[in-house]
Amino acid sequence: MAAADFWALERTNRRETALLVGTFLALFTALGFGLDLLIGEVYFTDTGGLAGMPFLTGAALIVGIIQALASYYGGARLVLASVHARELTPDTQQHQTVLNVIQEMAVAAQMPVPRAYLIDDPAPNAFATGRDPAHSVICVTQGLVNTMDREELQGVIGHEMAHIRDYDIRTMMMIAVLVGGIAMLADFVYRWMWFGGPSARRRSNSEGGGSAGALIMVIVLLLAVLAPIFSQLLAMAVSREREYLADATSVEFTRNPRALLRALETIATVESPLRNASRGTAHLFIVNPLEGAREDKEGFLDNLLSTHPPLSRRIARLQALLAQTSTEGTASTQAASH
């Protein structure tokens, strides 16, 4: 049963990743083609055909392919660098325990042991990334390590292990790097333009470079328009269903719904955003790391705009699961005493 589900999930993720990369390449090529048209390298003939050398189109396609490949192979490193994570070493008893728990969950999931990383941040959170289970990383915050007991940690790591097993990590990483990258670039260019960019200076002191200036303006405007669309796409591409599924799979690994429940409840009480998380990486985390993103709404619009289901919903689903198991399983006596 579980095995079949898992193959289906993996297939879905492969398809989504391919779709994402395809869309990305198409957009990039379209951008190159637009620029070709703009500077007159490619033009419409009188008969309605196209003529000229579309070499910016080609260049854009090549750059796009290189970027996609770099994202696939180096995406994990990029993500880890952007959240300022460092490799987790057994320097303290506490960190040794985290490494051990990761190993425990790898045994439970029958998967290779992922590498471990740490973010020095008091906000309790965690994420997993990588291109496949053999090249995967689990990253936890110091805040998580401080607030969780061993069983709760197992629940959280189990959740991340589920994302790894189902290849969610690959899709999420490509989204983070490709889409998040464009959004970030656009943000950057946008700010650069309005706050002392070259166009502002050029306006005052130059007469030449008119066409180049116009070109830059067009790119900037294009990116400025694209940025919010990309952020939107990003949120929509991230299926909130994944989080529910990973919670359920974590329980399948640990056979202990109560621990994950406690972990989520603990995290829910702490409203502290993660310093180095951004819109580009927020969807990777077990709970939304952004400021003020923990509202308990689940309307149509929230579905479109949010990368995470509300924590209260996830807790409710786990409680339902717990009620289910305690009526039939051996855990009933323990559940009652809690």
């Binding site: 040794q96 325990t97 051990n100 190993q103 045994v107």
Partner: peptide, 9 residues
């Protein structure tokens, strides 16, 4: 700690 993780594994 080592024994605990061994037992869990």
């Amino acid at each position: 700690e080592e024994l605990t993780t061994t037992e869990n594994q």
